[in-house]
C-alpha cells in the first residue's frame, strides 16, 4: 500500500511536469502544424533565467519564477518573429520548420553552455521540507509542482475554451483559411500560441530543474518525453496530451520503482509503439485532423 501511494505521488509529480512540458508542444502543432524542436530549449531557458534572477540578482522566489516563465515566452515570440513567420506559407513547412527549430535549439543550448558552463548546478528556486502519510514521504516540493502545473494548465484550458482569444486559436487550428475569413488575424494567433507554449515550457523547465539540476542539455530529456506524449495522444490534441502525460508519468514511476529507473522510459516507448500499431493517429487523434 505504501509502495502504491509512493508511486502515485511520484507519478503525479512526474506527470504534471510532463503535462506542462507537452501541452504547449501539442498546442503549437495543433494550431500551426509546427513541430518545435526548440521546445526543450525553452525549458532550459526558463530554468536558467529563474536561477539567474534568484541567485545572481537576488530577487525573491515568486519574482524569479515569473521572470523565468516570461523569458521562455519572450524567446518563443522572438523565434516566431525572426524565423517561423517567414516559413509559414511554404509547402514543406512541416519538415523544414523542424530543421530550423533544431538550429534554434542547438544555438541556444550552446549559448547557455558558454554562459553558464557545462557543470550542472542546483536550482535555488524550491521549497524545502516534507511530510508523511503513514510511511510515505511526500516532499512539499512535489505538492508545489503539482499545484503550479494545475494552476498553469487550468489557466490555459480556461483561456482556450472560455475566451474570445481561445476561440480564435481553436478556429485557426480547425481551419486556418476559414478563420481568416471570419476576421481572425491568424498571424497574430500564431505568435500568441508560440508565446503561450514558450511560457508553459519555461515553467516546466523551472519545475524539472528544481527536482534534478540545471545543465545546458536538461531540456532534451523532457522534450523527448513530450514528443512521445504528443504522439500517443495524437499530435495536436491538447487535452489528450495533458491526460496522457499524467498516465505516462504514473506508469513510468511504477516501472521505475519495480524494475529500476533506467527502464522507465524504454518500457514507455515500447508501449507507445504498440499503441501506434493499432491506432496510427494516436489515442485521441483523428486521421482527418492531421495535415498530410
Amino acid at each position: 500500500m505504501d509502495a502504491i501511494l509512493q508511486i502515485v505521488i511520484t507519478g503525479l509529480t512526474l506527470g504534471s511536469m510532463y503535462a506542462l512540458g507537452s501541452v504547449g508542444l501539442a498546442l503549437t502543432y495543433g494550431t500551426m502544424g509546427m513541430f518545435n524542436m526548440a521546445h526543450g530549449v525553452f525549458m532550459t531557458i526558463g530554468a536558467y533565467a529563474s536561477y539567474t534572477a534568484a541567485t545572481v540578482w537576488g530577487l525573491p522566489l515568486p519574482v524569479a519564477i515569473a521572470f523565468g516563465i516570461l523569458a521562455g515566452g519572450i524567446v518563443g515570440a522572438l523565434m516566431h518573429l525572426l524565423v517561423v513567420r517567414f516559413m509559414l506559407s511554404r509547402d514543406d513547412f512541416q519538415t523544414t520548420i523542424m530543421v530550423a527549430t533544431a538550429g534554434v535549439a542547438i544555438l541556444f543550448q550552446d549559448l547557455i553552455l558558454k554562459q553558464f558552463g557545462a557543470y550542472p548546478f542546483k536550482q535555488p528556486v524550491q521549497i524545502e521540507g516534507m511530510f508523511r502519510i503513514g510511511n510515505t514521504v511526500i516532499a512539499y516540493q512535489s505538492i508545489a509542482i503539482m499545484a503550479m502545473a494545475a494552476v498553469l494548465i487550468g489557466a490555459m484550458a480556461w483561456l482556450l475554451t472560455k475566451t474570445r482569444f481561445g476561440l480564435a486559436i481553436r478556429a485557426t487550428a480547425m481551419n486556418q483559411n476559414a478563420a481568416k475569413l471570419m476576421g481572425v488575424k491568424t498571424e497574430l494567433t500564431y505568435l500568441q500560441v508560440i508565446l503561450i507554449a514558450g511560457t508553459l515550457a519555461a515553467a516546466a523547465g523551472i519545475l524539472i530543474s528544481s527536482l534534478a539540476s540545471l545543465s545546458p542539455g536538461m531540456g532534451t530529456n523532457p522534450l523527448i518525453r513530450a514528443f512521445v506524449i504528443c504522439v500517443v495522444a495524437g499530435l495536436g490534441s491538447v487535452t489528450g496530451a495533458g491526460l496522457t502525460a499524467i498516465a505516462l508519468g504514473v506508469m513510468e514511476a511504477g516501472i521505475g520503482y519495480y524494475f529500476g529507473a533506467r527502464y522507465g522510459f524504454p518500457v514507455m516507448l515500447g508501449l507507445v509503439i504498440l499503441v501506434l500499431i493499432f491506432r496510427p493517429a494516436g489515442l485521441f487523434g483523428k486521421q482527418g485532423v492531421i495535415r498530410a
Binding site: 513541430f35 512521445v228 504522439v231 499530435l235 507507445v272 509503439i273 496510427p280
Partner: peptide, 10 residues
C-alpha cells in the same frame, strides 16, 4: 506506416 511528423518524433 505513420505520418511524417510521427516518424520524425518516434
Amino acid at each position: 506506416r505513420l505520418d511524417t511528423a510521427y516518424v520524425a518524433l518516434l
